[in-house]
Design a protein around this nucleic acid. Sequence first.
RNA 1: GACUCAGUAGCUCAGCUGGUAGAGCACAUCCCUUUUAAGGAUGGGGUCCUGAGUUCGAACCUCAGCUGAGUCACCA
Length: 568
Amino acid sequence: MSNFELSEQEGIRRNSLKRLRELGINPYPAAEFEVNATAKEIKENFVAEKKNYQEIVFAGRIMSFRIMGKASFAELQDHTGRIQIYVNRDEICPGEDKTMYNEVFKKLLDIGDIIGVKGFVFTTQTGETSIHIKEFTVLNKSLRPLPIVKEKDGKTYDAFTDPEQRYRQRYVDLIVNPHVKDVFIKRTKIINTMREMFNEYGYFEVETPILQPIPGGAAARPFKTHHNALNIPLYMRIANELYLKRLIVGGFEGVYEFAKDFRNEGMDRTHNPEFTVMEIYVAYKDYKWMMKFTEEICERVALALHGTTKVQLDDKIIDYKAPYPRVTMTEAIKEHTGYDISGKDEKELRDICDKLGIETDPSMGKGKLIDEMFGEKCEGNYIQPTFITDYPVEMSPLTKKHRENPELTERFELMVNGKELANAYSELNDPIDQRERFEDQLKLSEKGDDEAMFIDQDFLRALEYGMPPTSGMGIGIDRLTMFMTNSSSIQDVLFFPQMKPEKKAVELTEEEKLVQGLLKAKSPVDLVELKTATGLSNKKWDKAIKGLTSKKVAKVEKNDDGLFVTLV
RNA sequence: GACUCAGUAGCUCAGCUGGUAGAGCACAUCCCUUUUAAGGAUGGGGUCCUGAGUUCGAACCUCAGCUGAGUCACCA
């Protein structure tokens, strides 16, 4: 980057960097800097154990400065929080040379720099636990000014809030908005809690392919890519279900994976093109067992995060205390629309949709019609955790038919706050039935459903060797995190949500280049003469000359003879 | 994909019926001995998102575009 593009503050910081080097201070030292305390533990423990904090070594980023004559205060932030430091000139610089304080500390350091300090902990007159420092070490010179967020009495000033900047520059967001970090700490805690529970049960964490020749296990549009050496198309996985079931065939009795899935679909507040799903498959279990297991997951996660099963979400309290109500899809539709869908054919279902004011199109089969009814009229009503069970067979091509009614499947979704949180089945292990279901999907695809599933011959081959009765469940980690951290947008629970690329900064425009060319021939030159020579319209001339002056390419000066333009 | 709103200094935001920009913080210079978003004084800093149009004149009006947010549509 050339120098004239730097803002004033960036220029000043680069000059400070240069000056530090001139003083023999390495602004980017290589050596280990071993700390022996964190901001959090000092603030929590100092008052009770004063003796333990007489020789501490601490490192952090400078977040505020209060410089006075011979004494200054600053706040340092480490991964646990912030703590104040007190700096006294004559202690930092015991001899005659006061450079370390007067120049280095007061002038060359900026908010955003990272320093290490040695000293002792004390309490100021105003009662703030602080580090009285004896020496400091520059660990990193920051070249960009940080947005400064201030807070007093719970009121925040100058908050860094622009969502675009927060998501694009998450590193800045994390530095200045401490609550952002909390969300991600909770996200990891959710995953750890689940992993611990599954391991306790003796289940086995595995990894399965992300690049797949046939994207299976869900109804969604995949991302397509290409493998050069094999010269074949490959797809990014939309689910890991079919691979995990192959492992059950292979003899594992409980497998799970925290998986990144990819779907080439719309983006909004609740959808990111890549997202995390936990899928688990357990042999010799059914979907009824899985409901209890899912309840235990939710309960344990809520307790691990909040110490209670009651979790705030918007203006509601969601209680994850088990057990949750079980409502069949037929009951749910009956309750919220008044129509009984049991035993109805496609035409009758379409008529009901019409009466309910639900739009349909000819590509929709029975399953899709029922799904629409549920999605439009029922889903939103289930705020507290509720299992919706026994989905129509057309909607669930990988699910075992219901033991009592072949029109239905042994499937449940866990609804929370009107949204799907988890999805589970008694897995279909009848290879002949599975092949027929895939063929039905193919028919849907021919009818125009671009999300219908492909036939995975290898998966069918695996089932033909025999898979024990198995129950599987998938849970959206992003959505669970949103629920557990009261976040209204998926972007708030992803470190780096997908964004459109940033636009490149434009260089000189055509008009500016024209003016620059004329200036190279003659400079300084009378402004009116130059303008006439360009032949530009008033507006274009104005833009061009302002552009050049702002980029410090040209300069306009006024003297007694008039206005003159000079090439810089 | 449709509609609504927004884009002005490093950050948060003003900016009147159209007359080429302001504040606070941040930054710089100077003064100041344990201060609490904020000591005092002075000063510098701008592609008003981009382009075109209307106009004597556009941050402001019109059109197109870019980016983001929200609502809806699509969608496990």
